[in-house]
Write a protein that binds this DNA or RNA. Sequence first.
DNA 1: CACACACCTTGACTTAAGTCAAGGACACCT
DNA 2: AGGTGTCCTTGACTTAAGTCAAGGTGTGTG
Lengths: 222, 222
Amino acid sequence: MDIRRFISGIFLFHSFTEKEIDLLEASASLKKVHKGEQIFSEGLDATAFFVVVSGKVKIFKLSPDGKEHTLHIHSPGDLVAEAAIFDSMLYPASCVALEDATLLRISREGFLSIIKRHPDLALKMMSGYSRRLRQFVAKIEELSLKDMKARLASYLLEHSTVENGVTICNLKYSKKELSALLGTIPETLSRTLAFLKQNNLIIEKNNAIIIPDPDKLRIFSL
Amino acid sequence: MDIRRFISGIFLFHSFTEKEIDLLEASASLKKVHKGEQIFSEGLDATAFFVVVSGKVKIFKLSPDGKEHTLHIHSPGDLVAEAAIFDSMLYPASCVALEDATLLRISREGFLSIIKRHPDLALKMMSGYSRRLRQFVAKIEELSLKDMKARLASYLLEHSTVENGVTICNLKYSKKELSALLGTIPETLSRTLAFLKQNNLIIEKNNAIIIPDPDKLRIFSL
DNA sequence: CACACACCTTGACTTAAGTCAAGGACACCT
DNA sequence: AGGTGTCCTTGACTTAAGTCAAGGTGTGTG
């Protein structure tokens, strides 16, 4: 895998000159991880941030009694933990590979020295931050103001596409992971899916959910 | 109130020249609001962000059936809704004054043109963003992984100071507001306070909570 | 192919916390 | 001072969702 080519493809670095890409490349390395492998743990020194090259990783919080909440699942192209390098310098959550993955690791020191010479980089990062804040606001809203039916309905609608006139949501993660992402346990996810099925709001087919009437399901998402 | 003097006191603008402060001042105005007055609503065009000069404002989400969740309460010196001007351009939540307040309003257009000439501003803003993200991660953790006792215990410990060898948390908001901030209803907050009182973990005195044994209360905050 | 393990579903049961109601306390206004 | 409205507390009751357990299914390994 050509690091330079991958770096050039990242939106953040589009305006970099060859020399600047050299500098960044010197601060970067590829990290291959296997499914289940820990990439970093909450509370540890944030020596780097990452960009997902392939595979999927999840960011999550663990409670003392072993319960887990997934903050985000990152796919190829996503930045991971970039906020941690600007303040406090500790990772605020943990990161694990959901499947075999490759990550571009960019060291904090290298990146901070580059961004000081390219503060316009920071301006470019602002919209990414803004989007991340909005995602978190939406998650807080769901956890505090919506029940499981509404959360699941919202998830299904937001992650569905229209294929041959049929609205369909292909499940990209296991149900166990989906339940952790939606803030519940697998039992409750099963029950909520069953409720939606029994009320003819969804049809489950292999690893996909067909939504016969998206407008009807939308009523449940509020 | 001297806008220029206030602007100069904001960390973000410390390195501005007189001329630059002129430009910023031209994009700014003071906004006086009364207790309960709406400053902006979720979904509206984000034409400006704000800095709290005096008083307190809350950022909150409302559900269709009138339930409310407070995302943050801002005090003098805090930036409000600055993220909204970088992406999407809509306010992701609403803002209301908790008491009579004065806000510095900075127009989006003015600020964006200034930041394009001062991208180092964006770099300065990154640590503020990083802190905001951490706050949201902590809130999500509490809503998903902690019960009300733990949440309240955490809040009391984090907002307490030691006065004359006594750990004391002065309540800065009404209990109604505190319950919305902690993600519950007033009844549950009352009950949880009563539980902590009956177990000798807190003593309630006027508008303050005395914590006789912080280490003991900390066990409940996990 | 057989076995082990993890995931998923379902049932019984429990619990945290919300809903509804009412009374008391307090603050504000006339 | 009296009246009104809001907040706060408490009780009775309900509900959403978690805990625990067990069985079925699917996947991976030897």
